[in-house]
Design a protein around this nucleic acid. Structure first.
Length: 961
DNA sequence: TTCATCTGCAA
DNA sequence: TATTGCAGATGAA
């Protein structure tokens, strides 16, 4: 490191936008209803830069009034930008105010963009011997990079990358950073509306630059090009030169660089604190205070380390002494920390080394420590067992719990403090170590806290360790607090603790080629990361425990979601047997049928093309064959070729049916027949789906890797796939049990619509019954078509269908559809009343709820935008119904799982498909299971309308229906 | 390689 | 201009 002075120039708007959108799924709203996401995001980045780099010179640059010069050159410049979101507009005055209070200079020049201001300042500073870092994610700045000017780019997932000349050369495949201008000029920039050369994208631009070096040289040598490309470029030379000008950052903005003005100085701490508190930034305030405390410290020492992590070694003997001391006086919870060397400062003073190296990460905000193997572990576990509530987090070699190996486990039971037990690679040693921890995990009296405990439970199950006792899963808690948001820990930490944890990407890199395994991460970093996660999770728990508040939500959490997590873990570990030979032979049949259709389609089209490409297919159908006068287009301007559109055209040309058939078979083959066998887990020879418990806003589960909730059933060909799902072996049979019309029963019960309730009580065919009533014919005389239309309305009602939607869905005209809906509501008046009551409830309370008081918040219910409001109103009706059905089957699953384990049955519950459960039934247990499952499912929730479960068994999933 | 779009499967 | 999901193929960047 040289003594060269360092200047940091921050591209304010770029970071503000970035910060704002980072929170877009979980916007930060304070108690005054202000959206503070943009301010928070920006301040996080700014403090992060200051903390990491401790710049001695710093300024923040804004745009003002756009670039007069560029707009003069090209009126369309940035013309297609969406309006700045309100959340950003309102943030700007605050950010100005904060920067002023922080004594950070704000650079802004009317009629210039921040790019130009930054560029000009960077070049001036360079002349005065400064090293400049441009803090921005915007790649356009790469053109300014020189020996003394760098880009300092925040990366997604945390961390920064610095781009110097070599990085820019590599990234853009050029020799001189100035060529970035030619690059941008050639390929254009959609976000700035810079046109670029038509038909030139990144690849071509790089190729051109490698050959010609510049835009001008390319245009002078177009004779060397050929074909369409030659024509296009020759015709658009002027456009290319214009684009280059637009992409050039100006270096002659009338601003002065006077080093004194840019020196970092002590902020007005009380003022900043006051503003932060007004905005309700609690953790950010702490972070701010700490950042400036450490900046001062660093300044004092003149040469500061680049981070605040320190390592020290100390021996196990000293800890063992402390252990005996404090376990004899194990009353005070706080005192137990003295086990491992007393207060942090005390522990770091210990300097004795031994083979038991210990890793202590200690800064002003936290104290994290890894536990050496041997004696220290035993002592640690002893301490662990004295706790009543502990947060833990497993670190493993991968995401698949069936094959993941433990790399370490972090524990925390006191905010800001925690411990990490690294695991040896050797399997026997690892098993030996986990045995030491078994008494903790299997202790019924200790509450276990975690984020996504289903994962940890599955990992530990592979080591034959059961996690017993009360559980608190922060992810599940937040799912109940606000199901529409996202629930990953990093976002929760940012939202609720104003804290940005070390991201996993920063630790092990992006997925793909060079991603590290957690094992390759140095112990110190593992400790910091893992314990931080446990620490944060613990703090989130404190937060959510209060926020779950409402007694009924507590109950839903404790009695449903948490117990269900164990049930799901068991089902996922169990997996299901798949007959891959069967699927392989199915694949071959499909192949030959697809081949035949393909040839027929090419024949009918008169040329070969990619049938699976909607773009190419659209051109064939609507431009070549001119099948429709005015084909519908998608919002991106492509022809719509969806099944609903094409099926109307089937009579016009034989190619349509062929295409539809082709699509059906190709879909079947690629999505199911060929994909499923690849999902068989080699170590178990079964398929293990992963149920997501916190994804669906209504309370449903979702399934992935693979998704076993969308296996075909409606078409003959498709349902063959179900034959591939088979029992464990010949001693077992598959049993499928599904709720009959559960959603309609729920809406009937919730609305107290007697007519419909009676029909269910009498065991009538509900769709025929509805048809009989709305069409005014005796139930025995209902035609097939009438029943089908009634069925469509019955389902449509649940989703809030319109006459338009219904007419699309059926053969009815718009008028007929409207009439049908009107008659429907006349037949079932209370249903209509119930629906408006739900919407009213949502307007008044901002949420709707299910039978178990699961809430869904509908922020758009009072929106001025009719489309947005309409969607919220449909949600107000649908969410309680779909959600209540989800609640009910969850109850059944928990009770059934409980009965299965109590009775030590060999029968296992394998799958859940929203209203259906699938079991691998041990044949001798069949009769008992039939009774038990039906009883539990039908008895899961009592309503005015009885629940009805249909079940069947078979040698595969299809037969079981 | 990554990402958005289109399409289509289930309840 | 019908709810909730997941995922494959394509094609642009």
């Amino acid at each position: 490191m040289s003594d060269q002075k360092r200047l940091f120039l921050v591209d304010a708007y770029a970071l503000i936008f970035r910060g704002y959108y980072a929170f877009i799924k979980n916007p930060r709203i304070n108690s005054k209803g202000e959206d503070t996401s943009a301010i928070m995001g920006f301040m996080n980045s700014l403090l992060d830069v200051i903390k990491r780099e401790r710049p001695d010179h710093l300024a923040v640059c804004f745009d003002k009034g756009g670039s007069a010069d560029r707009v003069e050159l090209y009126t369309e410049y940035k013309a297609n930008r969406d309006a700045t979101p309100d959340g950003i507009k309102t943030a700007i005055p605050y950010i100005y105010e904060i920067l002023k209070a922080m004594h950070i200079p704000i650079m802004v020049k009317e009629g210039y963009e921040a790019d130009d201001v930054i560029g000009t300042l960077a070049k001036k500073a360079e002349k005065e011997g400064y090293k400049t870092f441009m803090v921005t994610p915007d790649k356009d700045f790469a053109q300014l990079v020189s020996e003394n000017i760098f880009m300092y780019r925040p990366m997604f997932g945390g961390g920064y990358e610095t781009w110097g000349i070599p990085e820019v050369q590599k990234k853009f495949e050029i020799t001189d950073p100035l060529q970035v201008i030619d690059f941008l000029g050639m390929m254009g920039d959609a976000s700035d509306n810079i046109p670029g050369l038509p038909g030139v994208g990144e690849k071509t631009a790089k190729k051109f630059l490698a050959t010609y070096g510049s835009m001008e040289n390319l245009l002078a040598n177009t004779h060397e090009l050929k074909g369409k490309m030659k024509e296009k470029i020759e015709a658009n030379g002027a456009l290319g030169l214009l684009s280059k000008k637009l992409a050039t950052i100006m270096l002659d903005v009338p601003v002065d660089f006077d080093a004194k003005d840019f020196e970092m100085s002590q902020p007005d701490i009380p003022k900043v604190t006051e503003i932060f508190q007004g905005l309700e930034f609690r953790r950010l305030t702490d972070n701010f205070l700490k950042t400036f405390a450490s900046v001062n410290e660093a300044t004092d020492q003149s040469k500061a380390p680049s981070n605040s992590t320190s390592t020290s070694n100390s021996d196990a003997t000293s800890s063992s002494n402390s252990v005996s001391t404090s376990s004899s006086s194990s009353s005070a919870g706080e005192g137990q920390f003295s086990l491992f060397g007393g207060s942090p400062s005390e522990s770091t003073k210990t300097e004795t080394t031994s083979e038991f190296e210990r890793n202590t990460i200690d800064n002003t905000s936290h104290f994290y420590q890894s536990i050496a193997p041997g004696m220290a572990t035993t002592l640690f576990v002893k301490n662990l067992l004295n706790q009543t509530s502990v947060c833990f987090d497993t670190e493993t070699t991968g995401l698949n719990p069936l094959i993941a190996e433990l790399v370490g486990i972090a524990f925390s039971w006191d905010a800001g403090k925690g411990f990490y037990i690294p695991f040896p690679e050797d399997k026997e040693d690892a098993q030996h170590l986990i045995e030491l921890l078994r008494p903790f995990f299997e202790n019924e009296a200790i509450e276990k806290i975690g984020q996504n405990l289903k994962y940890d439970i599955k990992v530990l199950a592979k080591y034959n360790v059961e996690v017993k006792g009360k559980l608190f899963d922060t992810m599940l808690a937040h799912y109940l607090i606000n199901p529409d948001m996202r629930h990953n820990m990093d976002i929760l930490a940012e939202t609720y603790l104003n804290y940005t944890p070390v991201s996993i990407t920063e630790l092990i890199g992006k997925k793909g080629k060079n991603q590290l395994s957690m094992r390759d991460v140095p112990l110190e970093k593992q400790t910091e990361y893992a314990v931080e996660d446990a620490d944060i999770t613990l703090q989130l728990k404190e937060h959510f425990e209060k926020e779950l508040g409402d007694a009924n939500t507590q109950k839903l959490f404790t009695d449903i979601e948490v117990p269900l997590l164990r049930v799901l873990a068991a089902m996922e570990l169990e997996g299901i047997n798949l007959d891959t030979d069967f699927l392989n032979s199915l694949s071959e049949q499909l192949n030959s049928d697809i081949d035949t259709l393909e040839k027929a389609i090419y024949e009918a089209a008169g040329e070969e093309f990619n049938i699976a490409s909607p773009k190419q297919l659209g051109i064939i159908l609507f431009e070549k064959l001119n099948l429709v006068d005015k084909p519908k287009k998608t919002k991106t301007g492509q022809y719509k070729t969806g099944e609903d559109i094409l099926s109307y055209l089937a009579k016009d040309h034989k190619i349509i049916k062929q295409v539809l058939d082709y699509r059906g078979l190709a879909k079947l083959k690629s999505t199911y027949v060929d994909a499923l066998p690849l999902q068989v887990e080699p170590s178990t020879n079964r398929v293990h789906t992963d149920y997501m418990q916190t994804v669906a806003a209504t309370g449903r589960l979702s399934s992935n890797n693979p998704n076993l909730q969308n296996i075909p059933i409606r078409t003959e060909r498709g349902r063959q796939v179900r034959k591939a799902f088979v029992p464990r072996d010949e001693n077992y049979t598959l049993l499928a049990a599904d709720y009959s019309q559960i959603e309609l029963r729920i809406i009937a019960a919730l609305s107290s619509e007697e007519t419909m309730i009676e029909a269910f009580k009498n065991g009538e065919d509900i769709h025929a019954s509805t048809a009989s009533k709305v069409f005014g014919v005796p139930i025995a005389e209902v035609t097939r078509e009438q029943r089908s239309n009634a069925k469509t309305v019955n389902f449509g009602i649940i989703y809030g269908v319109s006459a338009f939607g219904l007419s699309n869905q059926t053969d009815l005209s718009r008028g007929e559809a409207k009439e049908l809906i009107d008659t429907y509501y006349e037949t079932y008046p209370k249903l209509k009343k119930y629906m408006s009551a739900q919407v009213d409830f949502a307007r008044d309370h901002g949420y709707v709820k299910t039978v178990l008081d699961r809430r869904r918040y509908l922020k758009d219910i009072n929106s001025a935008n009719a489309i947005v409001r309409g969607a919220a109103e449909r949600n107000a009706v649908n969410a309680p119904i779909q959600g209540s059905a989800a609640d009910i089957i969850k109850i059944a699953m928990i009770n059934i799982h409980h009965k299965l384990s109590l009775g030590n049955f060999k029968t296992k519950m394998l799958l859940q498909v929203h209203d259906e459960l699938v079991f691998d039934v041990y044949k001798p247990e069949l009769e008992a299971m039939k009774t038990m499952i039906k009883t539990e499912m039908e008895g899961a929730f009592k309503m005015e309308v009885p629940l009805d479960v249909e079940m069947d068994i078979g040698d595969n999933w299809l037969e079981a229906h």
